[in-house]
Simulated assay, not measured.
Amino acid sequence: MQVPVIDIAPYVRGGSAELRDRAARDFDRAARTVGFMQIVGHGIPRAVIEGFADALDGFFGLPLEMKGRYRTPPDVNRGYAPPKSESLSLSLGVTAANRMNDFFEAFNIGTAVSDYPGLDLPATDYAENVWPQRVPDFQRAVQTYFAEAGRVARALTTLFADALDLPAGFFDRFTDHSLDVLRMNNYALPPGTVDLDGDLTGMGEHTDYGIVTVLWADQAPGLQVLAADGRWHDVQPAPGALLVNLGDLMARWTNEEWLSTLHRVKPPIVNGTIQRRRSAAFFHDGNIDAVIETLPSCLGAGNKYAPVTVAEHIRAKLAGSRAGQANTNATREAARLARAR
């Protein structure tokens, strides 16, 4: 399986209609066949990424007890999540052991009620962020990267409209108060903190929930994507590239003409030693009150999905992964996983 490399510079810095059309068609081809792609020309300065990576190291290097002070309830998708407190496969209603067993730890931030003072938004979904004070410059570095990743995500939705032959600005009314979350992940834990009680799961099999995910990751093993051949394939980012994949809401909009690809993370173990692996996923999920229904141009012979609000979909997914309540509304994704080899 090949993960295509796509230059989105014409949508970031401005480019001719010909260059934009080429990028849109390349993305459309990848969205229909792989659902994962590498993007270059994203325009995020190297210094921003390096400062962000240093901030991740600073926080995840704190003692577990100190990180635990920033833990929030399962229904609040902010703050710290310790190892084995989540199970991503439950977002599909699927798990082998029916327990929270994912190996990673994470720290989440996102858009908050205070970012949209003129709107009456639900405080649980748009929760205020918590910021660790023991890591100098953490908040500034993370907010700077969050803004850059959001800019890239919005450039991509502009590209999506062109690729799907939709009117310019089509996605704007679905994303003008988008529920955006940045999830910072760490897979390399100190020796002795992981109980190897069976098959160790870095991050369980899942699809992403929203519109599009922009992923920064170390060039380290672990990420695997389920391809059309029913097999899991290793994926690592090229130097300077970001990984992009589509979420469930884009699959619903396009009636699965664009793919929300199943993926997982295996523990980054090389020659018996746990390797450092960090990643940060920016989830561009759309307005909580937006109704997602199949585009008329994608209905074809029939409609695979009923309309759903972003709130209904995201809450069911998070109740699985974070609160252990198996999602019963992901039967199509679960069936694909059952066929994997």
Rank of each mutant, 00 (worst) to 15 (best):
D26G: 13
H42P: 05
A127W: 00
F36N: 02
S85Q: 06
S89H: 04
T309H: 11
A161C: 05
K317F: 01
Q143R: 12
P221C: 05
N303I: 04
E86T: 15
L56H: 08
A319G: 06
F59I: 06
Q224N: 08
T201A: 13
P10A: 01
A153Q: 07
K67R: 13
R134N: 08
D285V: 02
L121K: 11
L121F: 02
A141C: 13
L164F: 12
R252L: 04
E65S: 12
T309G: 10
F160M: 10
G14Y: 00
V130M: 04
I314N: 12
L295I: 01
A238I: 04
K304P: 01
Y116N: 03
D176S: 13
F103A: 08
T331L: 09
D125R: 15
M1P: 10
P74C: 08
R20Q: 15
P191H: 11
V235I: 07
T331C: 06
G58A: 13
G110R: 08
D57L: 12
V308T: 14
V94M: 00
T33F: 02
M66S: 14
D180M: 00
G93S: 08
E256K: 10
A141D: 15
Y187R: 12
A112K: 11
V48G: 07
R231K: 14
A53I: 13
I292P: 14
D289R: 13
Y305R: 13
R134W: 02
T261V: 01
T207L: 02
A241P: 10
A112P: 04
A330Q: 15
A330S: 12
N329C: 05
N98R: 15
L295W: 01
G286W: 00
A17F: 01
F59S: 00
F59M: 00
P63G: 10
Q325A: 11
A127P: 07
F170D: 03
D289T: 10
T207Y: 00
L164I: 03
R315C: 02
G300N: 11
P4G: 03
D137E: 14
A149Y: 05
L62M: 15
G15K: 04
R134G: 06
Y145T: 05
V76I: 15
A81T: 13
A30V: 07
W253R: 09
D197Q: 13
G15E: 01
D125K: 11
A55Q: 10
T254M: 05
V214N: 02
G79S: 10
G93R: 06
D120A: 14
W131A: 09
L242T: 07
L179T: 11
Q219Y: 00
N327A: 11
G240D: 04
I39D: 03
S321V: 09
P239Y: 04
N77C: 07
G41E: 00
A106D: 04
E86K: 14
G302L: 12
